[in-house]
């Protein structure tokens, strides 16, 4: 599958997929989407890239090892549970703050968002790890 057109398409599509996956992840709290779907999309982008070039190229493009994505993801998910403990609420209670950012309006940030980001990274990392390994074999 080392076709130039496919390679070109994969290279152009990768950033688009990534931005899209982040968007899907962020709006997931209110509309269809979320960490699982976003993670799957991001992974799909890289897998397409890996199929067009090869896995080494794709891993280079990823910059960090997929394993790091998993570690970061799980860490985010765990860290997101801590603020509730400090706030004296039961474990895993969602804690929210509202930021008013000029021009953008009100931005709501909460630990569930952080948790979902952890899910996003974990799913992304896991799928990339699995498929890259299988492809290399």
């Amino acid at each position: 599958m080392k076709s130039y057109i496919v390679q070109l398409a994969a290279a152009r599509l990768l950033p688009v997929t990534l931005i899209l996956s982040l968007l899907v992840f962020y709006r997931g709290h209110n509309e269809p989407g979320g960490g699982f779907i976003g993670g799957l999309m991001a992974a799909a982008g890289f897998i397409f890239y890996a199929m067009a070039f090869d896995t080494q190229e794709a891993e280079k493009k990823l910059r960090v090892s997929p394993l790091m994505l998993i570690v970061a993801g799980l860490s985010f998910a765990f860290i997101s549970t801590l603020p509730s403990l400090f706030a004296g609420n039961p474990f895993f209670t969602g804690e929210w703050i509202s930021l008013i950012i000029p021009l953008l309006g009100k931005l709501k940030l909460g630990t569930p968002l952080l948790f979902d980001f952890g899910v996003y990274l974990t799913v992304w990392g896991v799928i990339v790890t699995i498929i890259f390994n299988v492809m290399e074999e």
Binding site: N30, G34, D116, V119
Partner: peptide, 13 residues
């Protein structure tokens, strides 16, 4: 949970 996607809210909150 400050979210209207109930499925997602169940999952992450």
């Amino acid at each position: 949970a400050h979210g209207s996607n109930i499925v997602n809210v169940i999952l992450v909150d």
